[in-house]
Design a protein around this nucleic acid. Structure first.
Lengths: 349, 349
DNA sequence: CTGTTAGCGCTTTCAT
DNA sequence: ATGAAAGCGCTAACAG
């Protein structure tokens, strides 16, 4: 914080180079016509003076900040941080900055999203899992938003999501094949979306002849602890146990696994278990975790690409994309599934 | 993107209310003198017109954006995302927005940090774990930066960190008490800082009479996979095994745990293991993980507070803070440590 | 190709 | 208490 208290502006460069401000501006904006010799001179003087354009002034002038916001419910979820990285990486490759707004919903804080996003501060908004729907709805009138994971609720926006139905189909097929007929479902946070997905799952399971009683549909909150609790509660009941417990995330599954283990049951022999996400940890639980796999990174990437399109052309029709889901078969459902080759590197892009 | 293409500005409000722009400005900036009746009128008209100040113009005028950046090496690390949340939460409570810049170093991408941070776009920078040191060094001449985790290298900045030495001391004491005398260390990414910490650890361990041979100092890269690999490599060697493996993070420990398990050894009887972070998962591994505990959230919070101070007063002397570290005793070192009460909620602030 | 002139939307003297 | 005017640093017509 010492010397450069006086910022050097376009004006300084102009004066020093003996040209007009606009000429300096042009040399810095590719695609403008300026003679090679003046350009050279301006550039020289500029670096010599240590000039670089002030993005703020720039932005005010063209009313675009070249930054988009991604608003997320909680960055501590591995899944979400991967989505976010996908967004950030792709967007920055195209010269955009991204500002991450964490509403911390899972922590009951519901921080307001409006201030950082209002007005010209961002060119567009990527809304991850319906984070701050009400505020976003309002903002969607002024700038493009694309939704990830949960469809826009009551406003216009592009959508990038996951083909849950397909995933559920595949998973249920696999479970049936392995003779896991009585299914328990531990969902994430109970909200409109989770309930919807849960119903989808039940419908699909039943259509394949699997059994899903209502008492075995539980809700957790994405943490291992919540999975542990839900599972423990289930095990205390004096009923027969499910053949398999399907969890809404790997973290929930991790907790459930622990509860089963503590209670002295064996996985998968007594109770099988599935996660969702194929996160970093799923290969390393004991036993390794069968999980529904899709790439959060690619989800984010796709959303970023959609945003880029939309930014280029506001008048495009609303789009929807869904990504496919695979069953990653590991030991937590059936012992014979683990292969040594699976132990190779982390998937990255 | 429908109606509001024409933004309503201060001018519109002024005209409609029959006052000058400056008056409108004043009513919106607390602490300015404006008569109650005009203030009321302006406010009424403003909401009626749907006016809200344009932060960009505001920023250009006062040359402060009320936003600070946090640059992080990789948000997929639970630890780092928690630090980040600490920063974001505290800063937003004070009216600041924060923009998160992920350099994705661990992915070898080294995205440039300069563009989004240059010039007036942010008022200050929080540099997490020496993420983009060279660029930050340059920027530190123009605006305050506070470093988290690793001290500023070659530039002036405040520092908030962890009292590793204290943590190592406590851990080593505990290990000695449990008779784990031969220690293996699996560090994070090999860099100047990791090497330094590793040397600290060795020094401290030895000073307590514990054994740490050089061949048992390994480097991983924070992922479970890297921990798995390192551990596997270690187990292949035809030597005696360490009594305990201390890992640089819980994720690394998770991988190591799996490797030990796969190789047919028991934890902690044959080989004990420690993590670092006390992350979400550490209670749920099997066995549960003994780990060095400090609150990343509070680390971030503290950094944010320091930044707030610095923003208020540029001329403060450089400060340094370190946070204390505790050993969280669980089953992966000694079976008798787990208590049922430990299974309660996740720690949050 | 380059200079001139207006703004972008707000804050801030400086008068009144 | 309020208005007028200058300016933050840049871009964007419009003339030449």
């Amino acid at each position: 914080m010492s010397p450069l208290n006086k910022r050097v502006t376009i004006k300084d460069v102009a004066k020093e180079a003996g040209v007009a401000k606009s000429t300096v501006s042009r040399t810095f904006n590719a695609g403008e016509s300026v003679s090679p010799v003046t350009k050279e001179k301006v550039l020289r003087i500029a670096t010599q003076l240590g000039y670089s354009p002030n993005p703020l002034a720039q932005a005010l002038s063209v009313s675009s900040t070249k930054t988009v916001a991604i608003v997320i419910p909680n960055m501590e979820s591995i899944h979400i941080s991967q989505v976010t990285r996908g967004v950030i990486n792709t967007l920055s490759k195209h010269g955009y900055s991204v500002i991450t707004v964490d509403t911390s919903e899972n922590f009951g804080m519901q921080t307001s999203v409006h201030k950082p996003l209002a007005n010209q501060l961002v060119d567009g908004i990527i809304n991850c899992y319906a984070s701050a729907n009400d505020e976003i709805k309002q903002l969607s009138l002024m700038k493009p938003v694309v939704c990830i994971g949960d469809k826009p609720d009551g406003y216009e926006a592009d959508y990038v999501g996951i083909d849950y139905e397909q995933g559920y189909h595949r998973l249920c097929h696999y479970l049936k094949e392995k003779n896991k007929n009585n299914i328990c479902l531990i969902n994430g946070q109970r909200d409109r979306y989770a309930v919807g997905r849960s119903e989808d799952f039940q419908r699909i399971a039943r259509s394949l002849g699997l059994s899903m009683v209502d008492e075995w549909v539980l809700y957790a909150n994405w943490t291992p602890y919540s999975g542990y609790q839900a599972m423990q509660e289930l095990l205390c009941r004096e009923e027969k146990k499910p053949d398999v417990v399907v969890c809404a995330s790997d973290m929930v599954a991790l907790g459930a696994l622990k509860a089963i283990n503590n209670a002295g049951y064996r996985v998968p022999e007594d109770i099988a278990i599935c996660g969702m996400d194929d996160s970093m940890i799923s290969k390393y639980t004991i036993p390794s975790l069968t999980t529904l796999k899709f790439s959060p990174y690619r989800l984010g990437k796709k959303a970023a690409e959609v945003m880029l399109e939309r930014l280029k052309n506001k008048d495009l029709v609303r789009t929807e994309h869904v990504m496919s889901v695979d069953v990653e078969k590991r030991n937590s459902v059936s012992r014979d599934e683990d292969h040594l080759e699976q132990w190779k590197g982390e998937n990255d892009e």
